[in-house]
Design a protein around this nucleic acid. Sequence first.
DNA 1: CCTGCCGCTGAAAAGGATTTCATCCCTTGA
DNA 2: TCAAGGGATGAAATCCTTTTCAGCGGCAGG
Lengths: 340, 340
Amino acid sequence: MRTQVVTIHDVARAAGVSPATVSRVFNGGNVTPARAQSVQEAAAALGFAPNRVARSLRKQRSSVIALIIPDIENPFFTSLARGVEDAAQRTSLSVVLCNSDEDTDKERRYLEVALGEQMAGVIVAAASRDETDLGPLTARGVPVVAVDRRPRDAEVDAVRVDDRHGGEVATRHLVRAGYRRIACITGPAGASTSEERLAGYRAALHSAREEGVVGDDAYVRHADFRVEGGRAAMRDLLALPEPPDAVFVANNLMTIGVLDALGEVGRTPPGVGVLSFGDVPWASLVRPSLTAVELPSYELGRTAADLLLQRMEGSASPLQTVVLRTTLQVRESTAGPLTN
Amino acid sequence: MRTQVVTIHDVARAAGVSPATVSRVFNGGNVTPARAQSVQEAAAALGFAPNRVARSLRKQRSSVIALIIPDIENPFFTSLARGVEDAAQRTSLSVVLCNSDEDTDKERRYLEVALGEQMAGVIVAAASRDETDLGPLTARGVPVVAVDRRPRDAEVDAVRVDDRHGGEVATRHLVRAGYRRIACITGPAGASTSEERLAGYRAALHSAREEGVVGDDAYVRHADFRVEGGRAAMRDLLALPEPPDAVFVANNLMTIGVLDALGEVGRTPPGVGVLSFGDVPWASLVRPSLTAVELPSYELGRTAADLLLQRMEGSASPLQTVVLRTTLQVRESTAGPLTN
DNA sequence: CCTGCCGCTGAAAAGGATTTCATCCCTTGA
DNA sequence: TCAAGGGATGAAATCCTTTTCAGCGGCAGG
């Protein structure tokens, strides 16, 4: 129950040196080998573990980096997290994960924690394009990388995918497959990914006007990037006088809800075309197989971490935005309306 | 780039009081209302944000709690994490998540971080029953709760499910459904959940000997609690001269691998019975529907957090282990070998 | 032999908050 | 009216480590 079992002073006393020397032993200063060894031994004997809080206070920087994601239950983000971890693994930094739950308040709190705990760096997939404020962090010189989602006006490095282009390619694919009433279920209006993917959808529809494709916002729904939101939005679309014959769903979890809603009314792909932006988790179990825009989630995380590490090492190169490519993986769920 | 933009001293000077008074304003000490207000105003005007590191150093305790889980890509653990978060939400504590990746080294590192960062508490789903050492934390009086998995000899509160009983009920169900060569794919030998679920399986088989059920360790496989491990183990079982006609899979992700492996050779449940310990994520999409032992993952997290919070508030009641019940949810995948 | 330099070392300051302790002043009860 | 008590306040100690600075001793070059 003692508070600090053993400090650097105790080690110093045991080894017959000053605390400064003990510190140098553990931080690579110049110390005579013999003395260094006796310090090591004393530390081991006493079970000394450095107080990271005191160290952070003095160094004005801790040795952990924060990864703030909006939905820990979305495999896309956990895969991204793995990428970040694996990149950090090679350094002495630890990664802690914070789940903002798409809630800007929670997110703000975590950003405050990151600032107050003097974290060495922050990677954030922003809950909101407008409300996420990275200013305090950047103002204090904390390296920050925005991943997947880009807060507006933030002066930070960024890594994302070509959302707009991916959305356009996906929608065009539905057009070519023969669908004519193509709906879009996208995410919350505040998120950059929602907007971009929707923009891609709109662009594709716009250029397909002559082909008799309905381009109408009556077929656009904003949901919450979660299963339930997708389900509700799909139900809503199905209740239209003239329901869509295909749907472009802007993320993986909402696609699950969409498939559920379709199942409820006995309709299945590809009779109704379903195209997911982002692979549905464990898609191998889903029948029919799902056409999806594949996202390099792991690489997104790894790239973000690499960028962050560069900045932490003092790189002063101008801010950069890395855009990773998505690829459309065509499978059975968009085989066309006529086949069914 | 300034290190500490504004400290409690700056606020004190601006408000014409001492730093002690500023501290009291933010920590609920006795301060004259008028003075308190002028401090608040000064703090707001200067954009003061308390340095949590300094605070932690002085208080010998930070205001974050760590949740260490072995697989961030397993929805079981992310759901558990949500439970922890929601419970912590009601306090001023923040939760950070650490992914040990079933790796005792990574886990040890995170435990060191938790100790060194003087975290207010730790909830851990141990990567190993024997190698996970919670001693340093408990020795320093940090409240610790073991969740889901129980490290041997650890002097901590624990929350888990009735793994053994659940495994027994599940296996008995397979027997009653008519399966006779029942395999078990369990997790790594070091994890308590692996062992317990396997023990339940063995107990059920043992008492079913007279019914012609094969109870033989040739049908037991240890895998890694992941998709690939499940797939490999199932392939291995299918290669036996007399392959099993049912399999009890000790976790959700391995079940996905099992289903894949079965699909590869054109066999599907319930021809081969498949029973999963823990619901497969987004099971609604899986056909046939899967019989599973349902686990209260969210409640596991919430209960663990509640226990932790009690300890942090100083509860001195004797150590307790809370065991939550599992329920067998019978569905199509174990309808019996004859129906197919 | 002297000077200068360099490497090693310890004393002490610094980092920013909380908390103890002493002080002051005001209120209340006798 | 006086004493006791209690609330509000500030000075200073404290938490533990890193880092600066100065000093010391030894070595090399002049």
